[in-house]
Amino acid sequence: MGIKLFLSLLFSLFYSMGQGQSVVRIGLIADPQYADKDTHGSRFYRNSLAKLDSAVVAINKEGVDFTVMLGDLVDVGPKDLTPALQRLHKLKRPIYNILGNHDYVDVEDGSGLYKSYKMPNPYYTVEKEGWLFILLNTNELAEYATKAGSGERQTWQMLNDGLKTGKRGNDQPWNGGISTTQLKWMEKQLKKAQSKAKKVIVFTHHPLYPENGLEALNNREILGLIEKYPVVKAVISGHHHPGNFASYKGIPMITLEGMIETADQNAYGILELGVHQLNLHGEGRMTSRKIAF
């Protein structure tokens, strides 16, 4: 066999193998916290619009399948939402939002807030190729997201009181948790993914791990469910602006750096999901990571 024919056959083999292992590509943005107000400390609120513009242009060039925005699109609630959403709507491929605690500021009844953010539900799933993406609402049980006197507020109060008694440190006014209903829904999605041999990424606003006072109120309950399903390949969160990383029983827990921080350094990324590994290509302050499954 001639060398040219050998190389041609080798190329064809590798090409066909690659075709069977399609990569899912996702744009990632966390915590822009745009507001029409003056800078405070390291938070440059007005600068987030220019950062969103820059991120959108770059993500469009990357040809991603979709983008996930992990909460706190705005800093002081929906009054500043329109210009921020206008930036995200320039994305050529779908944008999937989740809510953060700042999105609820000055909202009397948070139950319908998801509609303003063009979300199909407060928590939902997205499927692509052999992947299931679960987008949780970790604000469901929070003082800022529930109506006074409601059953949800009472459930939050009991949960928060228990955390205070246990001196957990995450009983903070900016943290929230998920209801039993959402937890049961999540288990249904995980069972479905497992039965169909789909890999799973869980997206949250509040991190689940490590525990540093910014984790979701009932993070241990959520983690207890996740660890039962080896189809979960990573949890990706926002909320903690410096970013973070830890492994919980072999599951990568990635906290993305917040876009709001610094005057001119951006923070966004492109997530590539292959058959055997996760590649996060960070831009600006966002950390790049390569993790094998």
Rank of each mutant, 00 (worst) to 15 (best):
L256A: 09
I26T: 01
S237A: 10
E108W: 05
N101C: 03
N160R: 02
L52A: 07
K79Y: 12
G284F: 05
N160Q: 06
P32V: 08
G282T: 08
N47D: 05
P173I: 08
F203S: 04
F14P: 00
N212E: 08
W156N: 08
K118S: 04
T287D: 13
F11W: 10
K233N: 09
L214A: 07
T82R: 15
V231Y: 07
G238T: 02
Y114P: 01
F44V: 05
L73A: 03
V126M: 01
A216D: 03
H89W: 12
Y45K: 12
G250W: 14
A142V: 00
G250K: 12
R285S: 11
N218F: 03
G41N: 06
G130K: 14
Q265S: 00
L7Y: 08
F293K: 00
G238D: 02
K115C: 06
V107L: 15
Y96H: 12
A84R: 12
P94T: 06
A145Y: 01
S150A: 09
A50N: 15
I59N: 04
M186I: 07
M1T: 02
A30G: 13
G130Y: 11
G27R: 11
P120N: 10
Y268R: 06
F203E: 01
M69L: 15
N175S: 09
T180G: 12
R220L: 10
T262Q: 14
E283S: 09
H281I: 02
E272K: 09
L5A: 14
A246D: 14
L256P: 07
F11A: 05
P230M: 01
T287C: 14
H102M: 13
G269P: 06
